[in-house]
Amino acid sequence: MRHEYRPPQRRSRLTRRGRLALFLGTLFALGAAVLIPILHGGEVPETPRRLLIPEGQRAPQVYAAIDRELKLPPGSTKAAVATAGLALPAEAKGNPEGYLFPATYPVTSKSTPATLLTDMVRTANRKLATRAVADGGKAHGMTPYQTATLASIIEAEAEGRADMGKVARVVHNRLAKSMPLQMDSTINYALNRSTVDTKLSDTRIDSPFNTYARQGLPPTPIDSPGLEAMAAAVAPTPGDWLFFVTVKPGDTRFSATYEEHRKHVAEFNRIRAGGGSRTGQAGPAGK
Results as ranks from 00 to 15, higher is better:
9 Q>L: 14
284 P>M: 10
96 P>Q: 01
233 A>H: 02
65 A>F: 00
261 H>Y: 11
263 K>V: 11
88 L>Y: 01
256 A>Q: 10
155 E>F: 05
192 N>E: 09
129 A>W: 01
8 P>H: 04
242 L>D: 05
158 A>L: 04
9 Q>S: 12
107 V>L: 01
214 R>V: 07
257 T>E: 04
136 G>W: 00
220 T>M: 04
76 S>F: 01
175 L>E: 02
219 P>G: 09
116 L>F: 08
7 P>T: 15
258 Y>E: 04
117 L>G: 04
131 R>Q: 08
5 Y>A: 05
217 L>H: 10
17 R>P: 02
114 A>N: 11
46 E>W: 05
122 R>L: 03
185 S>Y: 04
75 G>H: 14
61 Q>M: 10
21 A>I: 14
253 R>M: 08
161 R>H: 03
172 H>F: 08
177 K>Q: 15
286 G>Y: 01
159 E>Y: 09
21 A>L: 15
140 H>S: 11
21 A>M: 08
36 I>G: 04
138 K>I: 02
34 V>P: 01
59 A>F: 07
56 G>H: 03
29 A>L: 01
53 I>Q: 11
182 Q>W: 02
276 G>R: 09
141 G>H: 06
237 T>C: 05
33 A>K: 08
229 A>Y: 09
4 E>R: 13
278 R>C: 00
275 G>L: 07
17 R>G: 15
208 P>S: 07
244 F>T: 13
11 R>W: 03
15 T>W: 14
188 N>K: 02
242 L>C: 09
185 S>E: 04
60 P>A: 09
16 R>I: 12
180 P>Y: 03
172 H>E: 15
109 S>A: 13
180 P>E: 07
257 T>H: 09
86 L>C: 06
31 G>V: 01
22 L>N: 08
236 P>E: 11
232 A>R: 09
232 A>T: 07
236 P>K: 12
20 L>N: 08
35 L>A: 15
125 N>S: 12
160 G>K: 01
48 P>T: 05
230 M>I: 03
234 V>Y: 02
227 L>S: 03
152 S>Q: 12
267 E>P: 13
264 H>D: 15
54 P>Y: 06
217 L>I: 12
180 P>A: 09
190 A>E: 12
260 E>S: 14
178 S>G: 04
104 T>C: 02
258 Y>A: 08
265 V>G: 13
104 T>A: 11
127 K>E: 15
87 A>F: 06
64 A>L: 10
151 A>T: 12
187 I>S: 07
1 M>Q: 13
105 Y>M: 01
128 L>H: 07
138 K>E: 09
252 T>K: 15
46 E>R: 08
241 W>Q: 13
51 L>K: 04
210 N>G: 11
76 S>K: 07
116 L>K: 03
263 K>I: 06
232 A>P: 02
194 S>N: 08
225 P>C: 07
153 I>F: 06
244 F>D: 14
144 P>H: 02
268 F>S: 12
56 G>M: 02
287 K>N: 10
23 F>K: 00
153 I>E: 08
58 R>G: 02
158 A>C: 07
92 A>N: 02
252 T>S: 15
48 P>C: 00
262 R>L: 08
137 G>S: 09
120 M>R: 06
245 V>N: 14
252 T>G: 15
121 V>R: 07
